[in-house]
Nucleic acid binder design. Sequence first.
DNA 1: AAATAGAAATAAAAGGTTTTCGGAAACGTA
DNA 2: TACGTTTCCGAAAACCTTTTATTTCTATTT
Lengths: 351, 351
Amino acid sequence: MTGRRSRSVTISDVASLAGVSIATVSKALNGKDNVRPDTRRRVLEAAEQLSFRPNALARNLLTGQSRTVGLLTSDSVGRFGIPVLLGAEDAFGAGEMAVVLCDARGDAIREQHHLRMLLSRRVDGLIVVGGSTDPRPSISRELPIPVVYAYGPSDDPGDVSFTPDDVGGAVLAVRHLLATGRRRIAHVTGPTHYKAAADRAEGARRALEEAGLEQAGETLFGAWSQRWGRQAAEMLLLTQPGLDAVFCGSDQIAAGFMEIARERGLRLPSDVAVIGYDNWEVLSAETRPLLTSVDPNLERLGHTAAQHLFAAIDGQAAPGVHSMPCRLVIRESTAPPAPPAPPERQSGTFP
Amino acid sequence: MTGRRSRSVTISDVASLAGVSIATVSKALNGKDNVRPDTRRRVLEAAEQLSFRPNALARNLLTGQSRTVGLLTSDSVGRFGIPVLLGAEDAFGAGEMAVVLCDARGDAIREQHHLRMLLSRRVDGLIVVGGSTDPRPSISRELPIPVVYAYGPSDDPGDVSFTPDDVGGAVLAVRHLLATGRRRIAHVTGPTHYKAAADRAEGARRALEEAGLEQAGETLFGAWSQRWGRQAAEMLLLTQPGLDAVFCGSDQIAAGFMEIARERGLRLPSDVAVIGYDNWEVLSAETRPLLTSVDPNLERLGHTAAQHLFAAIDGQAAPGVHSMPCRLVIRESTAPPAPPAPPERQSGTFP
DNA sequence: AAATAGAAATAAAAGGTTTTCGGAAACGTA
DNA sequence: TACGTTTCCGAAAACCTTTTATTTCTATTT
């Protein structure tokens, strides 16, 4: 037996209890038109007493708007998807919008499936969250609703995309290193084929160029992992004797680098300054010393993406790829190399 | 101007194109009743040609089911919320269910607000995801729809809750340490007031008791952080000379412990074995040595919670708090202390 | 007192689908 | 032919709300 729900209370129940017509109830509840104050009070009391909730399905059917947006994450909702999602949810939260979440697990078929479902539910708009900053195929063609892309932009410049300005973020990082007196700066980052890796390397190059300096060694492309950070550290310490700073393409790489640097007896940040990327608190707030990192402001990105989706739903589109600025969060790992460096820890107190 | 959408194609458009009534179209499309094969073909062709998608709003209004479940996370969707969410989304994904996500940010007012919204949308059920394993106030009272609680159980035993069996997980961990020959085992974990911390400590106690052993020192309660792991390590190495294993209440604590242990020159796992908790891959797969850890199977937990919600929607409730078993993921950090321990790394190759 | 303007309340339509029930056609049997 | 059976299709109701057009009521003015 399919659990037959007890018919829920409708607007006509309220109407008959209050002794008025359903039209009057509707107007009284929605604060519309002209309805006498005491009538309104009577209606409100009746609605309260029956704990009446207007059936959103009926309203939506009538108005054609579902007051719902779909959030489509192509790659599994990960480190980057979450903050964007939170920002979007936050932007909508105040109103009456609902967010339905669909995770395609990187499967194009499943994405298509979810898309049909969302369309059939007549969602008012769509946010597509990429798993990386690499451009992804557009799905906006032939779609009757507005779409904004967050984190990973669409490959169609006619779409609306919001993506972090990784070049700018890297420039911020390297300029900061230069400002604190570092001169021999290396760069370790993720796999070559990631746009994020290429962009950050490009930003580092620009900042060094504008200071008239050479990068310490070629950019080391590898993985986003701590393990690669450790490997890269061993290579750098061997091949770059005068090294005084490293800009890492992720916090994980930075954490790995610092681990090895400490083991080798280098003092951080006196001997070598380190900057990470992503400002992933679980890492940047746990390393020794605490890690200076570029924060891509993902939550804000999600927030503005959602706001623009709102605007687009009302017909105000702003096509193009919008680069959102990053900010630098300065912690201990890039303090200037004070000449009389105090001992970093009292080593030797334990046997 | 409020972007007036071009009226979308309805079932009657299909009907007139196929030259039949709308009832026939409905039946043909839903594979219902008896409709002649070639009529069905004609209808399908017409629907395809117009790329007709049935308006779910209308269907839902009629059937009273919205084919939607709400996912209410009290505390911000965090480390633990995500896998549960993925599991749930996965369980529904195959069908036509949609998941609307609501994050109350730990604010009871906002939770109430979201709840009204979900009720007004006539969701078929609700999954409440807690931010910790501590019981939370029930919201099922007076609710016309089924609710299941995931991760953090409800404080009402009449509700349906799924929560990881932390006592059992801790037993697994300590038994494994005992099986690999460890005898002096310490336990470091999170804040006292967390049920998770208390449960894991209790599990450790039981496993030691059944082996007739004493725990090495009192359980050290602190924080879930890496930093606390480091502090605890310094204390333990000072006060527990014969220590040969540590069971940590989180992977972060374990990572911190291992960091200090390495610095002090201890060989891992030969001298001291380490076990973490949560099996958080970002950590457990990056430590040196790789970290053995208790995996609370959160994705599976979310999956079964969703399945049970399905069952509850169909009237098959299974009230009570269901403890879901954890599993132990064995990696390098608990290898038995082989008597002729090979040197762990070639130290000294670098200047 | 009658006329009228304005306010307040109601009746009815609309929105798109599913489902029930009745009708029609086709076919076989007496 | 008359009748029963099967097969297929269509008319119409139902779901619940908002909105438009219309009616009823109240108060003001002539």
